[in-house]
């Protein structure tokens, strides 16, 4: 049985300017694997991830024919049941450490907060676990980072702190929204290998949301390509660089390459039919 099953997911926002359909009929199954969702900003990839956790505020609305996680109906779950799932069983790493970490709380305290409140462990145990989590995401100067406020960290450090925080409760499903876009390639590779180990060793499911096609091609098992709220192509990650859909091809072609010609990069010609 799959870990997560989503059928005909719709996310709509009723705004003053009319109904905005952010996600339009997205269906997918996720096992204990790495599923990539790629697309540009506004393609609905983040909204798809948030909808799984039912983290969409009014006027946003989530509708789906079915959305089940490990046998539990997420559409029918109460707010209390959702709270019990969030963090502990389904965790989400948000895109931007600047907005997702508490700016007036030291990193160490933020890491320990969940452990103290949710798992009721002692301060010493929480501290040790927080330090271990920072170690696991390859933070060198652990003592300084524990005492630091988020604004004292670089983007990459902040991102790693968030990943460490989400991994502490050992979730079954991790939704990572651009978890490595603030990181540079070497750290990116380290973070990906951490995520990879979690999928392999602990059988965690991973939804990896990214706009970086080459990264997703290398890292994921399967990829959904989204455009304007729809899945335009589903493809095995190893075949992504030879994608057939013109939108996927266009996204690949506009990337600069090492040793390339340095001529103007091709733009992306959008075709209205892709959104149909």
């Amino acid at each position: 049985m799959s870990l997560l099953s989503v059928k005909n997911l719709q996310v709509t926002f009723n705004t003053e300017a009319g109904l905005v359909e952010a996600v339009r009929g997205v269906s997918f199954e996720l096992g204990r694997e790495r599923l990539g969702i790629v697309g540009e900003s506004g393609s609905g990839k983040t909204m798809t991830g948030r909808a799984v956790l039912r983290l969409i505020r009014p006027p946003g609305r989530i509708m789906a024919d079915a959305m089940t996680f490990d046998g539990q109906d997420l559409m029918a779950a109460s707010e209390a049941q959702m709270r019990a799932l969030r963090g502990r069983r389904i965790a989400m790493v948000m895109q931007d450490p600047k907005f997702s970490l508490n700016p007036v709380m030291r990193v160490g305290a933020q890491l320990m907060e969940g452990l103290r409140q949710r798992d009721h462990v002692s301060r010493a145990v929480a501290y040790a676990k927080a330090v271990a989590a920072l170690d696991a995401v390859q933070i060198r100067d652990v003592d300084r980072v524990m005492e630091a406020y988020p604004h004292e960290l670089s983007g990459g450090m902040g991102q790693r702190v968030m990943i460490a925080m989400m991994l502490i409760p050992n979730p079954d499903l991790l939704i990572a929204d651009e978890p490595t876009s603030a990181l540079d390639v070497t750290v990116q590779a380290e973070v990906l290998s951490i995520l990879d180990a979690l999928v392999r060793d602990r059988g965690m499911g991973l939804i990896f949301i990214s706009h970086d096609l080459r990264l997703v091609a290398r890292f994921c098992d399967r990829v959904l390509v989204m455009y304007k709220g729809r899945i335009v192509e589903e493809i095995a990650a190893k075949d992504l660089l030879h994608a057939r859909h013109p939108y996927t091809q266009g996204l690949l072609n506009c990337l600069p390459r090492i040793g390339g010609t340095r001529g103007p990069l091709p733009g992306l010609d959008r075709n209205a039919e892709w959104a149909m």
């Binding site: 540009e40 876009s181 603030a182 706009h211 506009c254 990337l255 600069p256 103007p264 992306l268």
Partner: peptide, 18 residues
């Protein structure tokens, strides 16, 4: 361009080159 989508990155890089 690191905060931008691939297609927008291409446009901004082209603009800078020009």
């Amino acid at each position: 361009t690191s905060a931008l989508d691939a297609s927008v990155q291409a446009e901004v890089l082209n603009l800078l080159m020009r």
